[in-house]
Design a protein around this nucleic acid. Structure first.
Length: 590
RNA sequence: GCCCCAAUGGCGCAGUGGAUAGCGCGUUUGGUUGCGGACCAAAAGGUCGGGAGUUCGAAUCUCUCUUGGGGCACCA
């Protein structure tokens, strides 16, 4: 990356200055290279001279001068001193060579290597398999999928996983609900369970069961029938979920069964690790996890677990001491063959991720309702002797869906859900993904269906796609005129003769913007904030449109047209890559 | 009560400890005898919620207060 190259050159200049005595000896602190606010100040600005004032015991401008004196930038960039700032400007010659570099990189353009092949798992989605994929889960899967795309581009070996919560109370209620509808559809007067799922899709599932299996479950003992139909129901739901995910371009490497944590005996193998450390406590017939092994008071009333202590002011959430969380209790789950509690699964699952499968990092994408579980998972991870830094929790805020100026209320139990399919039907997959990505995960997102549809003309959702289609149109026209072989829209052309270096400010601005994609990939991969992609896509399209306005491509002198066609192709490639990272299509026409 | 998140032009939001805080929508005024007007330009619009602190330098870090959202069950 260019920024890293420039940083290395500055570091070298400081070392050189020190070795000849222009600067005194000191340990070089970490420093940054920023983009100056004003373009006229250059492409990058180093404020390192100010940082060094104390250790070098010199006025910052003088330090800047002495660093600059040793700066060996070659033809990469030029520098200017502005007080203590060292401003660097990439040269047109260098920028010109980068257009070829972009086209040569092809589909790999924008990829960086910071991941160094580390194995990272992104677990996302993982909604209870008790109903269709809702638009609320849409934010989860789109965030997770996009991060997975970007981490892949950043050089990580990424594994995409959906955790199927096919155990526990909710599943029991679900099974009972399917059974009730099943019986009712077959004319049996079966009461609907109180904690049941009231959505109509349950009846649909029941009908499909009848079609496939007939009435044979009526002949089984109720408990057995409920369990069996629950299992089949989950399969049915998950199949539909997969179809819905496919419509927004989301695929998984694995669907991981929660139940398998018990069926494989893993849970019973991992639990002794905690027991041996004295972190498991029996109390009132239940089994508890207590991170510091502190005894549980016999209060006679249900123990409110989280009397946390603050271990560190820096990161409360992650380092909280968790004193008591129940792992197994007959009051919660009476059936000893069923999964004990949610935490029990988390214990086995994190072990499975980090030890059995050996991922370097396990990223969990969780909605804000799971925020309270963060300390528990971190505590369990520590207790198992695993490095908590290998567990990364991404907590995103929920979305509010608006239609006709009103908030659409949703609840899976009550059955008034808006599915992701509904939204995709209404506004399309690309717009759905774009909107869900467009805000920081830390802020709540208002998804106004009417907004996205109504203003299809001046809608920011389609702006980058429009720019892409516009480039395609130019390239098509060029092909008709014989300026470009239509068969090879992105194969590299021969390098430009140096006399045709790009010189127009709008050309150079566009190249600079194209090069930024690597920084965006790095930023998203390190901050795990996918909305930077939408910001970049907008500004990339804007920069291209300025080029389009100022620099005519076709009908200029042959060398100029050839050079600008190359630049247009590089812009098309960069737009397409950005859209692909967001999981959006790059249309040739709109 | 404890914990997490948010507060930035009229509205919606970006912003990596660095220079004159940006973008979209909206508003106003303009733009193509040429490649897609789903485009572009200009203008108006800001005490970055209040206060204190750290720092050469704070929208950004710390503390505190205010307001709003979420989480704090032997639920998931």
């Amino acid at each position: 990356m260019i920024r890293e190259q420039l940083k290395r050159l500055i570091t070298q200049a400081i070392l050189d200055a020190q070795s000849v005595g222009d600067l005194p000896a000191f340990e070089l602190p970490a420093f940054t290279l920023d983009h100056p606010r004003q373009a006229q100040m250059g492409d990058y600005a180093a404020s390192v001279a100010m940082q060094l004032a104390r250790v070098a015991r010199m006025p910052p401008p003088q330090i800047a001068q002495r660093i600059a004196k040793h700066l060996a930038l070659g033809n990469l960039a030029t520098y200017e001193l502005a007080s203590a700032y060292i401003n660097l400007r990439l040269t047109p010659e260098y920028l010109t060579t980068q257009v070829d570099a972009i086209l040569n990189a092809g589909e790999g353009w924008g990829n960086i290597t910071i991941g160094a092949g580390q194995r990272v798992q992104v677990e996302h989605g993982s909604a209870n398999p008790t109903g269709p994929l809702t638009v609320a889960s849409g934010r989860n899967v789109v965030i997770g999928d996009t991060l997975a795309n970007v981490l892949t581009a950043a050089g990580y070996a990424v594994h995409r996983e959906w955790y199927v919560n096919n155990a526990g109370n909710q599943i029991r209620h679900f099974g009972a609900s399917v059974y009730a509808r099943y019986a009712q559809c077959l004319g049996v007067d079966e009461p609907f369970p109180e904690d049941g799922y009231r959505g109509e899709y349950i009846t649909d599932i029941a009908k499909r069961m009848i079609e496939r299996e007939g009435d044979r479950y009526l002949k089984l003992p109720k408990d057995e029938a409920r369990r069996a139909l629950g299992k089949l129901g989950i399969d049915d739901v998950m199949e539909n979920v997969r179809t819905s995910l496919g419509r927004v371009g989301i695929y998984y490497d694995n669907f991981f069964s929660e139940r398998s944590l018990y069926e494989s005996g893993l849970f019973e193998r991992v639990l002794p690790i905690l027991r041996d450390k004295g972190l498991l406590l029996e109390h009132d017939g239940a089994l508890w996890f207590s991170e510091d092994g502190s005894p549980i008071a016999d209060t006679g009333t249900p123990i409110a677990d989280l009397d946390h202590e603050t271990k560190s002011k820096v990161d409360n959430q992650k380092s909280k001491i968790v004193q008591a969380v129940v792992i197994r209790s007959p009051k919660v789950i009476p059936d000893p063959t069923e999964r004990p509690t949610y935490l029990a699964s988390d214990i086995a699952y994190v072990w499975n991720k980090l030890v059995e499968r050996g991922f370097n990092r396990a990223i969990y994408v969780w909605g804000e309702d799971h925020q309270g579980d963060v300390p528990r998972l971190m505590a369990v991870t520590r207790a198992l002797g695993l490095d908590p830094d290998r567990v990364v929790l991404i907590i995103y805020r929920f979305i509010t869906l608006m239609r006709n100026g009103q908030e659409v209320r949703m609840g899976k139990r009550a059955g008034n859900i808006v599915t992701l399919d509904d939204v995709v039907d209404e506004v399309g997959a690309d717009a759905t993904r774009y909107v869900l990505l467009s805000r920081s995960i830390d802020t709540k997102l208002v998804f106004d269906l009417d907004d996205v549809k109504r203003r299809a003309e001046d809608n920011p959702v389609f702006y980058p796609q429009y720019a892409h289609a516009r480039i395609c149109s130019i390239l098509r026209k060029a092909a008709e005129q014989g300026s470009l072989s239509p068969a090879s829209p992105i194969t590299p052309a021969p390098p430009l003769p140096s006399s045709h270096a790009y010189a127009h400010p709008s050309e150079l601005a566009l190249i600079r913007k194209l090069l930024e994609i690597e920084e965006v990939v790095e930023q998203v991969a390190t901050q795990l904030q996918p909305h930077h992609l939408t910001t970049y896509a907008q500004s990339l399209a804007t920069t291209f449109n300025a080029f389009y306005r100022d620099c005519h491509v076709l009908g200029e002198a042959p060398e100029v047209t050839a050079a600008r066609l190359k630049l247009a192709r590089a812009a098309k490639l960069t737009l397409a890559r950005t859209l692909a990272l967001m999981g959006m299509s790059a249309p040739e026409r709109m």
